[in-house]
Amino acid sequence: MERTSFGHMQCPIARSLEHVGEWWSILILRDAFYGLSRFDEFQASLGVATNTLSRRLAALVEAGLLEKRRYMERPPRYEYVLTDRGRDFRPVLLSLLAWGNRQFATEGRSVELIDRESGEAVEPVLCDRATGRPIAEMRVRAVAGPAADERMRRRLSDPPVL
């Protein structure tokens, strides 16, 4: 079955999924945030087949989320480091972590976020940058932006409340 491409869609969620919608990609990014950078480290952590890992790493490099850097000449060896675009994915990962803890960790939390200064547990919350108000407490709606095409404008002509 051939994979559907979402890159041509105007929806920012669809376009994001074009680059990180495959579960190995998100787990590779998670491990990169945990400090892993070498192929064998990702492979050992994830237990993923080497051909799958090679394809996912190449796709993340092509998408600009990771940068491939040579760290050894003979034999040639590479490391994969987060780019600015990749580091910008951090809030998404932290949101997934918090959501997974709330919704699916029936045995209890296996990973927690701790403030380095206070030592207190922290719970990520998506907030409006301008007001600092949590989005979950606001009644927001999706509206067509300035670059929206006619199809997107029609879809959002009666804006849904999110």
Rank of each mutant, 00 (worst) to 15 (best):
C127P: 02
D149S: 07
S5I: 14
G119P: 00
I135H: 01
R129S: 14
S110L: 13
D149N: 14
S25C: 06
L29S: 05
T131V: 01
A32L: 04
L156A: 08
V143P: 00
R77S: 12
D149T: 03
S45A: 15
A58M: 12
T131P: 00
E73G: 10
N101K: 01
R74L: 13
D158H: 09
V161N: 02
E18F: 01
G7R: 01
V111D: 02
G47A: 08
E117D: 13
E62I: 01
Y34T: 11
S110A: 11
Y34C: 15
A144W: 13
V122N: 07
R109K: 06
R151S: 09
G35N: 02
L36N: 03
L27P: 01
M138Q: 05
M152Q: 11
R155T: 03
A147H: 10
L65N: 09
Y78W: 07
L29R: 04
F104Q: 15
R116H: 14
A142Q: 02
S157Y: 10
E137D: 08
R154M: 05
G108Q: 05
L126P: 03
E2D: 15
L93N: 04
G145Q: 09
R74P: 07
T52M: 13
R139L: 03
R153K: 15
T106Y: 12
A32C: 04
A14C: 10
D88H: 14
L65V: 05
R155E: 03
E123A: 04
F6T: 08
S118M: 13
A59M: 09
R141T: 07
C127N: 02
G132F: 09
R74Y: 11
P159G: 11
L65E: 07
M138D: 00
F39V: 03
V20F: 10
M152D: 09
E73I: 14
W24D: 12
A49N: 11
C11N: 13
S110R: 10
G7P: 01
S157G: 09
E137S: 00
E73H: 11
I114P: 00
D31F: 06
S45F: 05
H8E: 11
L17A: 12
Q103I: 07
Y34L: 15
G119E: 01
A59P: 04
A148N: 08
